[in-house]
C-alpha cells in the first residue's frame, strides 16, 4: 500500500519483523560502512570496509526479497527489495540501534570519524551475525537457511578481519588503546539489544524459524572475551539501558541516515540505472 507521501506501510507480523530485523541490521550497517568509501585510513582498509558493505547489502537484498514475497501485505501484493529498502518510514525499520549510530561523520550528539569505533562495531556485529547465521542453517524455512549458508562464510571472514584490528589497536600504542577503550564505552550499552528476547523472538523460536536473540549470547561472549583478552581490553559492565531499534523505535540518527539512503528513490520513484 502506498500513501500520498510515497511511503509503503506494512502490516507487520512476527515472522516478517523477525526477517526485517536481520535484513535491516545488515542494510543499515552496510550504509554506515559505505560512508568510508574513499575515506579509509589506508587504501587496504577502504577496500575492506566497502567489500564488507557489499557482502552485507547482498545479504540484505536476499532477505528483503524474501520478506517482500511474504503473504499478509495489505492487498496481498508482493513488494520488491527496493520498495522495502527505500519506501519504508523509520518506524518500520527494525535494525539494531547500534548500526544506525554515526560512524565516520560526526553528528550533533555523537562523535564520529574515529576508526576505532568502526573496528569495534564491525567486530561486535560480525560475531553476532555469525552466531545468528549458524543457527539459521537449521531454520525450517529452506530459503532462509540457504541465505544463512552463504552469509555465514562471509560473516566469519568479516569477524576475523575485525578481530585482527581490535587486537592491533588494543595491544598497540597508548593512543590507539585509549581510543579503542573510548569506542568500547560508547558501543557497549547498545549491545544489550542484541540479546534482548521479546515476543517476536519467542514466535520465531517456537515456529522453528530461527533462534531467539538470548540464545546467541553465550557463544558471542566467549569469542568477544577471547579477543578482548588479546587486545588487553576489559569487558565493560552491563548497563540498564536497552535500545529499541528492533521494535522500530530509533535514535535521533535514524531519520538522517534514511534521508540520505532513500532520497534518490523518493525524488525519482522507480528510477533505475
Amino acid at each position: 500500500m502506498t500513501s500520498a507521501s510515497g511511503s509503503i506501510h506494512l502490516e507487520v507480523t512476527p515472522p516478517l519483523q523477525y526477517r526485517l530485523r536481520i535484513a535491516d541490521t545488515c542494510l543499515i550497517h552496510a550504509q554506515r560502512l559505505a560512508e568510508w568509501c574513499g575515506h579509509g585510513p589506508v587504501l587496504e582498509e577502504d577496500i575492506a570496509l566497502t567489500n564488507m558493505a557489499l557482502d552485507l547489502i547482498g545479504q540484505a537484498r536476499a532477505l528483503l526479497t524474501q520478506a517482500g514475497s511474504l503473504a499478509g501485505q495489505p492487498g496481498g501484493e508482493k513488494l520488491s527489495e527496493d520498495e522495502l529498502a527505500f519506501l519504508r518510514d523509520e518506524r518500520q525499520f527494525f535494525n539494531l540501534t547500534l548500526v544506525e549510530l554515526p560512524l565516520r561523520k560526526a553528528s550533533a550528539h555523537a562523535p564520529g570519524g574515529d576508526f576505532a569505533d568502526t573496528v569495534l562495531r564491525n567486530f561486535l556485529l560480525a560475531g553476532w551475525l555469525k552466531a545468528l547465521w549458524s543457527r539459521l542453517l537449521s531454520s525450517n524455512d529452506e530459503e532462509l537457511a540457504a541465505i544463512a549458508g552463504k552469509a555465514l562464510k562471509e560473516a566469519r571472514y568479516h569477524q576475523r578481519h575485525a578481530a585482527d584490528w581490535v587486537m592491533r589497536l588494543g595491544d598497540g600504542t597508548g593512543e590507539s588503546a585509549s581510543r579503542l577503550r573510548a569506542a568500547l564505552e560508547r558501543a557497549w550499552p547498545y549491545t544489550a539489544e542484541m540479546f534482548q528476547r521479546d515476543e517476536v523472538d519467542a514466535h520465531a523460536e517456537a515456529a522453528g524459524l530461527g533462534p531467539a536473540r538470548d540464545a546467541l549470547r553465550a557463544e558471542w561472549q566467549i569469542e568477544v572475551a577471547a579477543v578482548f583478552a588479546e587486545a588487553r581490553l576489559d569487558l565493560p559492565a552491563d548497563t540498564p539501558f536497552i535500545s529499541t531499534g528492533t521494535r522500530g523505535v530509533h535514535s535521533e540518527h535514524m531519520g538522517f541516515i534514511l534521508a540520505e539512503m532513500q532520497v534518490l528513490q523518493r525524488s525519482y520513484p522507480g528510477g533505475a540505472w
Partner: peptide, 30 residues
Amino acid sequence: GAAVAIRIRPRAVECPRCGSLQTERLSAFG
C-alpha cells in the same frame, strides 16, 4: 562452539610465480 578460536592469519599461500611459501598477506580484501 568455544573450542574453535578465531583464526586471524591465513595459512601460508604459495607464490604463483616462483612457488615460494615465504609470502605475506598485504590486504584481506582485494
